[in-house]
Amino acid sequence: MTGYRPSYLNVFLTFARNSLVRDMSFRANFILQCISTISWTVMNIGFYLIVFQYTDSIGKETGWGRNEFFVFLATTWIINSLVQTFFMPNAQQFSELIRSGNLDFALLKPIDTQFVISFPRVDWAALSNLFVGFTLLCYSLYQLTTKAENPLIIDWRSILMYPFYIGCGTVIMYSVMITLAATSVWLGRNQTLYNFWFYITNFSRYPMEIYKVGWGMALWVFFTFIIPVLLVVNIPARIMARPLNTMNSQMWQLAGFAILATVACLMISRRIFVRALKSYRSASS
């Protein structure tokens, strides 16, 4: 085994291909899943269309008007679809591996355990939301850049930073998820993983400005600095939806901090995962 180093990229591509073959074997089911994922998103857009009949923006003088907010929403769906495509099915599987003792097989493989746990299943149907997100993004950006007064001029730096921060956001979400999944080693089983995940990430779905009133400040601090899910969507959406020169210094500081938070989240979740594996006692006989 000495000197042997598996090609992580090749292994991942094999995983992705296998999943695609599997999805394509039940094609009707795959299409149904795509349709249901998309209709969920469309319904959500419908909700905000209703909301924007009654108001011009989310929060007073926050700058999140209808089209700006739809950029925000599109960013949410893009990040969500990435997480749900690549990580969600695996994290759910992880607690099942622990409960059934099948984690033994993953531990025996000559490849990093966190890698082999995090990537084996790719849920291609969930990627359909990426398409919806991207369409919504293009549509609202078109609306913003062509509006009569004060049209948005997209800076080339925004175009570079947007995908970068989408990546950061996805990594933060992944870290939160793998940490939650790792706790199932101690709890024995963690079927409510998805619920917890939903409750925590629920806070990331809205512009951070709405929390900055009264005791919401405490929430803002907690979900920005302790569990930084508020940065996930807010930073890339803010960079894309509104002109960069209107970004205040606090926002720039947060954008800097987001990079730091991404690295920290990844490292901390890795440590928790390794700690969890050490406490793992096989369940088989």
């Binding site: 909301v51 009654y54 108001t55 011009d56 923006s57 989310i58 929060g59 007073k60 003088e61 926050t62 409510t192 619920n195 917890f196 939903f198 409750y199 629920n202 806070f203 779905r205 809205y206 512009p207 400005e209 709405i210 929390y211 009133v213 919401g216 929430l219």
Partner: peptide
């Protein structure tokens, strides 16, 4: 589990207060 189920209400509170604040209306 039931107690946890109330958590999303918190975000709803902030969302709707933000909507009301921006609309400038007392009632929607």
């Amino acid at each position: 589990g039931t107690l946890m189920r109330f958590l999303p209400i918190i975000t709803q509170v902030f969302l709707w207060y933000a909507i009301f604040a921006a609309s400038g209306k007392e009632k929607i």
